[in-house]
Design a protein around this nucleic acid. Structure first.
Ligand SMILES: [Mn+2]
Ligand SMILES: [Mn+2]
Ligand SMILES: [Zn+2]
Ligand SMILES: [Zn+2]
Lengths: 138, 138
DNA sequence: AGAAACTTGCAACAACATTGCAAAACCATT
DNA sequence: AATGGTTTTGCAATGTTGTTGCAAGTTTCT
């Protein structure tokens, strides 16, 4: 497991308090986080704008990836694979629990390929599964 | 192909100007629409709030379905299958063109089942494929 | 240490979303 | 067709979320 500093170094991001703290939040969190979640978890008070900009540069550098939602929100989670600036390789499935509302990266479940109609050229696919997660059996 | 009135009747929604017009927009549009797109296409001026509420009841009744995005937006598209209030059956793949930015329902490409880790109970899955659409070959 | 490059906070603003309430439209019934 | 009960709409107010420019503060490099 890499430390926050190592991750920043590796991705050529300058090392600042804000980035370290936000990265730590991701490192300590199981599951995905929305902007709002991060702000809540930030004990020290960083400006909202800083959080926005930090998330943005993390996505650009391939430190975190985005997970689509249907609630006017974007979720973010650490990239565990070797993502680089511009090219993410997070082809795993995301699971949204309808009970606890947690979204989990299923690192070991890769998104299957599908056969598209003639003419469509895919280059990236995301899959989101809703249901009951392992902690919320019913 | 059903008319706007037929769709409202079938779903026990009272027939109002706003609903008819918004449904027409969906019926005349290839691809998915965001709230903002609908407001732009509305020549007559309906209140923003009405559009929100209309979309909401359409989703609840199974007239339209939502498509997740990573840009703080929700896309909506007509349900062509027999969706009902509470239970949608739109298990098709959605294609997002990075060129023209159109999102298309690939009605004939169904979302494949994936094997989840022990303990996860799925009940719905969505899949979004990004790439170049059939009109934007490069 | 000093200069250049980058990051941050602040303030102002813009865009988007939600709520309560009264007026209007709709629908079922007579 | 008129009536009355129910649902929907618009408005106004308010809240939430996201963006931008700029000056001050940090970080990095030499
Ligand atoms: Mn993930
Ligand atoms: Mn669809
Ligand atoms: Zn759960
Ligand atoms: Zn296209």
């Amino acid at each position: 497991m890499q430390t926050n500093i190592e991750i920043l170094r590796k991705n050529k991001l300058s090392i600042t308090q804000g980035r370290l703290v936000i990265l730590d939040i991701f490192l300590q969190t199981e599951g995905a986080l929305a902007h709002a979640d991060i702000e809540k978890k930030l004990s020290s008070n960083f400006d909202r704008v800083t959080v926005y900009r930090t998330l943005q540069s993390f996505v650009e550098k391939g430190v975190i990836h985005q997970i689509p939602t249907t609630d006017n929100t974007i979720l973010y989670a650490l990239c565990k694979e070797n993502c680089e600036a511009g090219h993410h390789h997070d082809e795993h499935v995301h699971f949204v629990c309808v009970e606890c509302e947690q979204t989990t990266c299923l690192e070991n479940v890769i998104v299957p390929k599908v056969k598209l109609p003639r003419g469509f050229k895919p280059f990236q696919a995301a899959m989101i599964v809703k249901g009951h997660c392992v902690s919320c059996k019913y």
